[in-house]
Structure formats: C-alpha cells, structure tokens
Design a protein around this nucleic acid. Structure first.
Lengths: 141, 141
DNA sequence: CTGTTTGTTCTATATGTTATATAACTAGTA
DNA sequence: TACTAGTTATATAACATATAGAACAAACAG
C-alpha cells in the first residue's frame, strides 16, 4: 500500500494524493530519482478516476517536485530543492505556516507544545547533508 | 482597517476572514471578551455579502473561538483554550502541520530554517501565563 | 515499422462549493 | 415600541471536484 486516502473526507482527493506524496518525499521514502506508479495504475489502486490522479501529479509538477515524461512516467526531481527558493512560494508558505500556528495558539496550545509538535514532525524527515542559498525571512512587524 | 482580504485570491473569502481573525486572536490584538464588528458592518467594510462574513464567523463559532449573540454580537470566547484540547482537533491539526512542514522539507528548506520560521511566527503571538492539560502527542511511527 | 506504455488533451456530465441577492424571522435591549 | 444584530430560507450564477469515454503523442522494445 503505497498511498492511502479518505474518499469521503473534507479535503479533495487530488489534494490528498499530492499531500501524501509530498510527505513521502520529505521522509525520504520517495527519494530523488525514484519513480511513482503510473497515473492509470495508481487510479485503479485507489479506486478513483485517472483524471483525479493526473491532477495531483500535475500539481506536484507545477510545484517543481515531479518530472513527468511520456514513457518514463512520474519521477521525483533530482534537483528539487537545490538552488534558491522561489520567493513567491516562500512568502505563501510562511503565510500558511503563520495561520496554522496561530490556530494552535488561539486554541490555547502553549508555545512549548507547538515547537514540540514541529520538532516531532521534522524528526521523521530525511534532510540532505547540505543546504545553501536559504535564509530565514525574519519576522516582519 | 481591522482586516484586509484578497477578493481574487485562491483562498475563499470566508476562509480568509476566519484566518485573519484567528491570527488577531493569537497575537492578542483581539483578546478574550473583545467584540468583533457586526456581520453586516464588516461585510460593508470588506465589500462583500453579509452571508460571506456570516460563514466565516460561524466557522469560528464551531471552532469554539467565538460566541455569537443576538444583541451582543460576535465576541471572542473567554474560555477558548482553557480546559483540555479536543482530541479530534489535535489529530487534525497535527496532520496539517506535518503536511505543511513536509512541503518545506521537500522544497529543500533546511531543518534550521523551518524551526526558525516557526519561532519567528510565534514571536508575534501573545501566550497567556499558564497552560495545563496540554501534552505533546509524541511522534507516531 | 509495429506495438505497448505512458502522459496529454478534449468533451461531457453530475454534484458540491462559493458568493451574491432578497426577504423574512427572532431574540435581546433601550 | 423600535432598534440592533444574528438566524434562516430561497434563488441564482459561477466555479471546483470527480467521473466517464475517447482520442492523441511521444518514448521505447522488439
């Protein structure tokens, strides 16, 4: 079982597919250069239409995480995350992070707990040895 | 200007309204017991229909952050975040956090950078003095 | 060249979501 | 009573999601 989804959940199926694959990449379970199942096959495995899988794969291609080829299929990009980050993506991501953390703070979760959850999540990730050209954005007023 | 939105962005207006208010609560700019603008007035200020604002307020009520009264209007709940967290909410929030952090890791952002962004975001929050009944969920396999 | 595999594109349809627009109703409060 | 403010109902237009079927195009194996 390479991937499981909730067909009746509130989050769209194509988005769940994207999310699960993003997590698989971050955790090193789907390393750079590794192949994903063909669109049609994954669609059969998940019991969904192949257009739905296609939409998820296409999202990942737009995000620069996948390379899609005619016969080669879907492959995790080797240079996905080398080079400097897209400024638009960084801005957007920071915004989404702040909203998500604000939700926890508003719900009464203590700062220690929030940082703890962040670190617990990242303990599952497989970070490559080096990373350059990345710098914190600081905290705007 | 108590709140600004992007009418033509990809995220729904009612969701933006919810997000901005959640952030205002977390940052202490909208403390417990404080009042929000009436639905119709905020709708006029933002240039949207009052049903759209109503949907955002209702979301916050479902999340336990607002109390809506006939004449009292919309007020930030005083006990929003006292007591133990809803287990369903905690599970869901942790899942969303992991997906979001995984996205950054997959994009090549180093662990240091991710933690830094988390801390920078939380530096803007106003945490209350004490917090009990909260405990980390650890990192499931 | 033939055939298979795989992603890509197109049209169509059914259902759900988002946003707007009117209108009316209900409960507090002065 | 009258005002304020949330609540509910109906209708509509536009967009998003998921499914379905068909055909097309490139890469590769034989």
């Amino acid at each position: 079982m390479l991937l499981s989804i909730e067909p009746d959940g509130p989050v769209p199926i194509y988005q769940q597919i994207r999310d699960r694959i993003v997590e698989a990449i971050a955790r090193g379970r789907q390393p750079a250069g590794s192949a994903l199942p063909p669109i049609r096959q994954l669609a059969v495995d998940l019991g969904v239409n192949f257009h739905t899988v296609n939409k998820g794969y296409d999202l990942l291609r737009q995000e620069g995480l996948l390379r899609l080829g005619r016969k080669s299929g879907a492959v995790v990009r080797r240079d996905a995350g080398s080079g400097p980050p897209d400024p638009a993506w960084a801005r957007d991501w920071t915004g989404r992070l702040r909203t998500l953390l604000a939700e926890a703070a508003a719900q009464g979760m203590p700062a220690i707990g929030i940082v703890g959850e962040c670190e617990a999540a990242m303990a599952d990730f497989a970070f490559p040895a080096a990373a350059e050209a990345w710098q914190g954005s600081g905290s705007p007023p």
